[in-house]
Design a protein around this nucleic acid. Structure first.
Lengths: 176, 176, 176, 176
DNA sequence: AATGAATGAGTGTTCATTCAT
DNA sequence: AATGAATGAACACTCATTCAT
C-alpha cells in the first residue's frame, strides 16, 4: 500500500467521522483506527490535526464541485444542474452536511474560509454564465446567489431536495 | 437576583459562546465566568451540559420565531415576511449561525431534532396559510419549503440576504 | 489540609524530582503522585508546568539565601559565612545541585534568569559589604565573585566543600 | 564520506544541541537533521540515545583537557594555566556549560560519572604536580581542588572569568 | 548503509462532573 | 445556592526505537 493511498484513507476516515459526529466529534485516534493504523502513525502523514482538517476540507469541496455538462440549451443546462444537485443531496447527504459544517466554520477559521470561498466562486461564475443565456434580462448574480442559497438550505433537510428544486425550476420559468 | 434570571443569564452566555466559537467551543467554565458565577454553581441550574444545551436550543428557536403580522393583503404579508427575514439575518447573523448549527446537530441528536422540528412546523404552517391566499393555484407546501430553504441557506452568507430575498420575491410574483 | 500546604507539598515534590532526576526528569504525574493527589488536580494549583517550575525556582533560591549573621569582627563574619556555606553544601547537596541546574537553565530561560540574578545580587552585595571591612585594600568585587564561584563550583563536588572553603579562608588571610 | 567522519558529525551536532538547549532538549531527529542524514540512519552509528550521549561526553571532556605547557618557572606555568582557563571559558562558554551539565548528570548516571572522574583525575594530578613546585609548603591537594572549583563555578558566569581568575592568582601569590 | 513507515509508551493539558463544606 | 478542591477519562502530540525494503 503506497503512501498516497494511506493519506487518502486517512482523509476519508476523517471525513466519515465529521459526517457522523461533526467537527466537534473528530478524534484522531478514531480516524487512525478506522484507517487501520496506529494513531501516532497518523502524525507521520499529517503533523497536526489542523493539517488533516485542511486535507478533509479540500477533499470535501473537490468532491462536490463537478463541472456543469452542457445540454442542448442553456435552460436545459440549468434544469439539469438543479436535478443533479437534488440527486446528489439525496444520495450523499453526509457530503452536504460536511459542506455546511464548513460554511459555519469558515466564519471563524480563515484557512477554511479561503477554500470555501474559492470553491463557491467557481460555482457562482459557472452559474452566472449559463443563467445569462437561459434567462436574458434577469438579474443573474442575484439568481445565482439564490440557487446557491437554496442548495445550501435544502442540504439541511435533504429529503425536501427534489420538491424544493422542482419548485425553484418552476419559478425560474426555465422553458427553452 | 432570582434563579430565573440566573438561568436566563447562563443561557445567554452559552448562546454567545456557541455563536462565537460553535458548539465545539462551548466550555462550561467559560459560560459560568461570563455569567459571573462559579462553574460548579452552574450545575445547580443545569445538572449536565446537555441540559444547558437544551435550554439554549429553546432560547434560540424562540428568539427566531415571531408570528407573521397580517398586512393589507396576503401578498403584502409574504413580502413583509421576506423583508423581515432578510433584515433579521443581516442584523443578527450569529442567531442564524446558531440555528444552522442546530439543524446540523439535529441529524445526530434526537433531543435537538425534536425542538427544531417543532419550531419549523409552526413556521411552515403559517407560511402555507398565507401563501395559499397570496398565490392561488401554486404548490404551497413546496413553496413554503423553498422559502425556508432560502432562509436557511442564505444565513450561511448573511450579506447576500437582501439581494437573495429580493430575487425570491420577484420570482414569486407577489403582486396584490 | 489547606490550599497553602497543598501548593507547598507540590513544590517540594517537584523540587525532589528535579533533585533526583534533573529538570529533564520532571514529570507532572510523578510530582502529583508524590504529593498524593491526582495529576489533574495539580493543574488546579499550577495551570502549567512552567508555573510549577517558577514556584520551585523561588522555593530553591529562597531556601538557599539566608542573611549573614554578624560576628564580633568582619573577618569572623566572613569566616563564619564560608563555614556555613561548606556545611550547607555537605548537608543538602541536592539543594545546591538544583541551584546549579538553575544557573544552567538561566542561560536559556529568561524567567529563571531573572530569579537567579535577583538572588545572586543580594548575596553579592552582602558579601562586598563585609569583605570591604574585613579586607581593606582588596578588590572586594572580584573577591566576592571569587567566593561565589567557589561556592558554585564546589557544589558540583560536595564532598570537597570543607577542604576547599578552608583553603579559600587560608588564602584570604582572614585574621582579625 | 567515511563512517568515522559521519560519527564525528553526529557527535558534534549532538554537542551543539546540548549546548543550545541542554540535555533535556536533545532530540535525535534534530541531531540527524543537523548532520544531514535520516534519523533512522543515526541508529546505525549509535544504536541508542545513550550511546550517542556517551560519545558526546567523551568528545566534550577530550576537547577541554589539554596538557599544561611548561613555562620558565612552575609559578609561571600555573599563571599561564589560569589565564588559558579564563580565555577558554570566555571563548567557548557552551563547551563549559556542557561540561557543567555533565557534572550534574554524573550524580545520577554512573556511565557519565566514570568519564567525568577520569577526566578530572588527570587535571587534578597535573595541577598538584606544578603547585607543589610553585607553592612549596602549601596544601597542594586542597589548592588544586580550589582551582578546579573556581573553574567550575565561574563557567556558570563566563563573563566573570578573567576577573575571578586574576583575583585567584593574586591570592595564590604566584611570584617567581 | 540508508530510508520512510510504523509503533507504543508517555507528556502536558483540558474538561465535565462530583464531593465536601 | 454556592464554592473550591478533586477526579478521571480523554485529548493532541512527541519521541526513541524498530521494521521492511
Amino acid at each position: 500500500m503506497n503512501s498516497g493511498s494511506r493519506q487518502q484513507a486517512l482523509v476519508e476516515a476523517a471525513f466519515n467521522c465529521i459526517a457522523a459526529r461533526g467537527f466537534e466529534g473528530l478524534r484522531l485516534r478514531e480516524v487512525a483506527k478506522e484507517a487501520g493504523i496506529d494513531h501516532s502513525t497518523l502524525h507521520h502523514y499529517f503533523p497536526t490535526k489542523e493539517d488533516l482538517v485542511a486535507a478533509v476540507v479540500e477533499h470535501a469541496t473537490r468532491q462536490f464541485w463537478k463541472t456543469m455538462p452542457p445540454q442542448p440549451s442553456a435552460a436545459a443546462t440549468v434544469r439539469y444542474h438543479l436535478a443533479v444537485l437534488a440527486d446528489m443531496i439525496r444520495a450523499r447527504p453526509e457530503l452536504f452536511a460536511v459542506l455546511r459544517e464548513l460554511d459555519l466554520r469558515a466564519a471563524r477559521d480563515a484557512r477554511i474560509a479561503e477554500v470555501v470561498t474559492r470553491s463557491e466562486r467557481g460555482w457562482h461564475e459557472a452559474l452566472r454564465g449559463v443563467l445569462a443565456e437561459a434567462l436574458p434580462g434577469a438579474d443573474v448574480a442575484a439568481t445565482a446567489d439564490l440557487v446557491i442559497s437554496v442548495a445550501r438550505g435544502v442540504s439541511l433537510a435533504p429529503d425536501q431536495a427534489p420538491a424544493v428544486f422542482a419548485q425553484l425550476e418552476v419559478l425560474l420559468d426555465l422553458t427553452d
